[in-house]
Design a protein around this nucleic acid. Structure first.
Length: 424
RNA sequence: GCGGGUGUAGCUCAGUUGGUUAGAGCGCCAGUUUGUGGUAUUGGAUGUCGCCGGUUCAAAUCCGGUCACUCGCCCCA
């Protein structure tokens, strides 16, 4: 009973879903490579500190959403809840800090113990790009440009809006946080329960609270842009100038805050309203502090990650699997001849099936069901005369051709070189 | 983790104030067609009514629990 259903928050990728996923992954990797992001992959689990240090022990992701366990050697390991920390760790582990910048593309499963909802799974998939080793705002622009092109080529860009914000450098952020906490403390009892908690844990988060009472208070709260240092402002301006010049539309969203601790300066999200409360389809930002948290040198980095399942919900595309050719074996005595023919066709690159149902009629029925455009019918009579029957499934036309012409016939047919199907 | 909704055939869903053999469409299988599919026509099978317990003469229907899905919150991709 129990074993017959998948673990909560996991899902099988049946051919339809898998093909949809493949479309997304292929598009992501193709677009990323145009920007120089090279495909790489890290293990799906790491020492727990890889995530707990940079994400912050108190962050929800680490505090209650990680799948952690001890291995037989007693090490505390964690299934990765996101990709950036792993990629940064890999870069440091592999000594690449000596040859910066590095640009990586990755994709794969991530794990978070959350209450599942549409577009939110316990095992889900992300693709992402990381531009590591540059403080230049143009790197931010490159990352956002890549994300934009990816979404656009997938055909989901129109349903999303690019929200952009600057969190400023550490100095700006600390100043602002202090001022915000001071302001909100005056209204402590009027804030929602959640936000009263957030006041201690992650006050910036209150800015995008959905509770009405919070929104009312936030209206008059100090705004982050006013606290940006001149350097931080300059960084943001250079980025937005670049985006504007390239015709990439964006929208300032001063309430946009990244959930994870290591972000600074640029934060952005592509948000759709088509997915309810899981509207963030792709998100990212600058994380200059991450390397140092993991014991690496001080260096700048920007990146994004996109949720594959969420993207899949936005696209209809998928490729139905179809065969090209069916080999219909009429008599059991010629089964080996049928197999040899099918095998030959496959060697030539044709997707070929041998329908394994009784009776010729059902074999042909099967052939049309699985999308064959051609059926090659082979029986005792055909073998005797070194011929086969060719049936064109779309028109129903049928004729006899020599067995030696089968490959050339199929080749011509699928190249659509024949004027009328039977003229040669 | 908190709150709301849903759970009937492979799929989409009906099922009256509790009432006796639980239905439709699509799909599937078979016949009309023993070496010829699609269309048509005839027939057939769909099933632990999510699971466990309770109330009742009687439960798909009411109650409790549980599991799963779903929506919102939290959080995030």
């Amino acid at each position: 009973m129990k074993p017959m259903q998948p673990v909560r928050g996991t899902a099988d990728l049946m051919p339809r879903q898998k093909s949809q996923m493949n479309i997304i992954l292929q598009k992501a990797s193709t677009v990323a490579s145009r920007y120089g992001f090279q495909d790489m992959e890290t293990p799906i689990f790491e020492f727990s500190e890889v995530f707990s240090r940079p994400l912050g022990e108190s962050s929800d992701v680490v505090a209650k959403e990680t799948y952690s366990f001890q291995d037989r050697g007693g090490s505390s390991l964690t299934l990765r809840p996101e990709g950036t920390a792993s990629v940064m760790r890999a870069l440091i582990s592999n000594g690449l800090t000596q040859s910066l910048p590095q640009k990586f593309y990755y994709g794969g499963p991530m794990f978070r113990y959350e209450r599942p909802q549409k577009g939110r799974m316990r095992q889900f998939h992300q693709i992402g790009c990381e531009y590591i080793g540059s403080f230049n705002p143009l790197a931010d622009a490159e990352v956002i440009g890549c994300a934009t092109q990816f979404l656009s080529e997938l055909g989901v860009f129109d349903t999303c809006i690019l929200h952009l914000n600057s969190l400023g450098d550490a100095e700006s952020r600390d100043d602002y946080r202090a001022s915000l906490v001071a302001f909100l403390s005056n209204y402590k009892n009027e804030l929602s329960i959640d936000s009263q908690r957030r006041l201690n844990e992650n006050p910036l988060r209150i800015l995008d609270s959905k509770a009405d009472e919070d929104r009312e208070i936030i209206k008059d709260a100090p705004r982050l842009p006013a606290f940006l240092t001149t350097q931080a402002k300059h960084h943001f301006e250079q980025l937005t100038n670049a985006l504007d010049k390239a015709g990439i539309n964006w929208q300032l969203d001063t309430n946009l805050v990244r959930g994870l601790d290591y972000y600074s300066h640029t934060a952005f999200e592509f948000i759709t309203d088509a997915l309810g409360s899981q509207g963030t389809v792709l998100g990212g930002g600058r994380y200059d502090g991450l390397s140092a948290m993991l014991g690496g040198p001080d260096m700048g980095a920007v990146g994004f990650a996109a949720g594959v399942e969420r993207l899949a919900l936005l696209i209809e595309k998928n490729e139905e699997f179809t065969y090209d050719i069916a080999v219909v074996i009429v008599d059991d005595e010629v089964a080996s001849d049928g197999f040899a023919l099918a095998q030959n066709l496959r060697l030539q690159g044709f997707k070929t099936d041998i329908p394994m149902v009784p009776q010729v009629g059902k074999k042909l029925k099967r052939a049309s069901l699985i999308g064959c455009e051609l059926s090659f019918i082979i029986g005792k009579n055909e073998i005797k005369s070194d011929t086969i029957q060719v049936k064109i499934m779309t028109t129903g036309e049928q004729k006899q051709i020599g067995i030696s012409q089968v490959i050339s016939f199929a080749t011509k047919f699928f190249k659509r070189e024949l004027e009328s199907n039977f003229s040669e």
